[in-house]
């Protein structure tokens, strides 16, 4: 996974803020107060990087700006850049699947496997 600070999406900060830090106005640096906003996603997109042609349609169409460019991690260097989904903000709307002409993205259920690590 590419480091989030390489791309133009807010970095998430772990620091615990006290109201004294943020409650003076309703204006504050991004990345602190809205940590994630993906809880209502019930399906998530999975991108098949081998099929991805780097056409950037999903990147352009995502209404949430939750798809971002990454350096192609695969050995084949046909494309310098590919794309990745920011699961901290992806709402699971599925528009990326709709606009992908190459069938490189599919939606899978959030609860597609029982998470035994949780019990």
């Amino acid at each position: 996974m590419a480091d989030r600070k390489d791309v133009l999406i807010p970095k998430l900060y772990d620091e615990k803020l006290s109201p004294k830090d943020y409650a003076h106005t309703t204006c504050f640096s991004s990345g602190y107060l809205s940590q994630t906003n993906a809880s209502w996603r019930s399906e998530r997109p999975v991108i098949n990087l081998k099929k991805c042609t780097a056409c950037m349609q999903c990147y352009m169409y995502c209404p949430d700006a939750s798809i971002y460019k990454i350096k192609n991690p695969l050995e084949d260097s046909k494309h310098e850049e590919l794309v990745q989904v920011d699961l901290d903000f992806c709402k699971g709307c599925g528009i990326c699947v709709e606009v992908c002409r190459f069938g490189s993205i599919r939606m899978v259920e959030e609860a597609c496997e029982f998470r035994e690590d949780l019990i």
Binding site: S42, A111, R115
Partner: peptide, 8 residues
Amino acid sequence: LDQSLLEH
């Protein structure tokens, strides 16, 4: 009602 929401 939804397994994906189960937490310890």
